[in-house]
Design a protein around this nucleic acid. Structure first.
Lengths: 108, 108
DNA sequence: TGGTTGGTACGATAATCAACGTACAACGAT
DNA sequence: ATCGTTGTACGTTGATTATCGTACCAACCA
């Protein structure tokens, strides 16, 4: 018997916990790279379902978790939806210029 | 900047064949990232054995092949040694700023 | 000629990973 | 209360990967 309902929340790495190889690995997947590029283009929070990814829901959950655990995206709940946003400031602070060059390279 | 064609006999991708996700995947391994960083620091050709990697020869061969097939390093034979050099110009032309930001991020 | 050096080829193994389906949970609306 | 929406948890499968050992090859040297 649980006393109180635990708030739904997930672990985000702090800026000083970001690992370059983990970030690169997260970006080294076409689907995840497209997610990051879409977030960067929109500049806003987007729900997982807003991406219309060509995979099932469970696979989508997997990819968003990889991105979150690498520190690339921030996630928070809004109703039933999970809103995703790019951690651009944190990434720019720790890995200056990295995100910009990756996004520029992905654009062509 | 000679227009000399790359030696194709060992399977080097041409500049327009470079794939961003493949490059990121090649860099998303600590050992391979250290190889690239060492090559960038030295600015010269280095034999495989010059890196003193904490893996066996066959594993070393594997990692250098991944780097070559992703287009990150150029390899040529010199006697029994295989000399490796960074394809910095090619990478900068196709993915401007990418290598620089990765190397800068890897340095700290 | 034979040994040493530097690297490759091949095969094996254990780990990781992307993808799926099913079941379920949280929330909002009916 | 039930239903639809949205996403998670769990277990599985097939592919890829990092690692190794052994055997081998090609070039140089004594």
């Amino acid at each position: 018997m649980s006393a109180e309902p635990l708030p739904r929340q997930v672990g985000h790495p702090l800026p000083d916990e970001l690992r370059l190889t983990e970030v690169l690995h997260a970006l080294a997947d076409p689907l995840r790279l497209s997610i990051v590029a879409t977030l960067a283009d929109s500049g806003a929070e987007l729900s997982c379902s807003a991406f219309h990814l060509p995979v099932t829901k469970s696979t989508s959950t997997h990819h968003f978790r990889v991105l979150r655990e690498a520190g690339l995206v921030r996630q928070r709940y809004e109703g039933t939806a999970r809103m995703n946003s790019l951690r651009r400031e944190d990434l720019d602070a720790v890995f200056p210029g990295l995100l910009a060059s990756v996004l520029a390279s992905a654009k062509q």
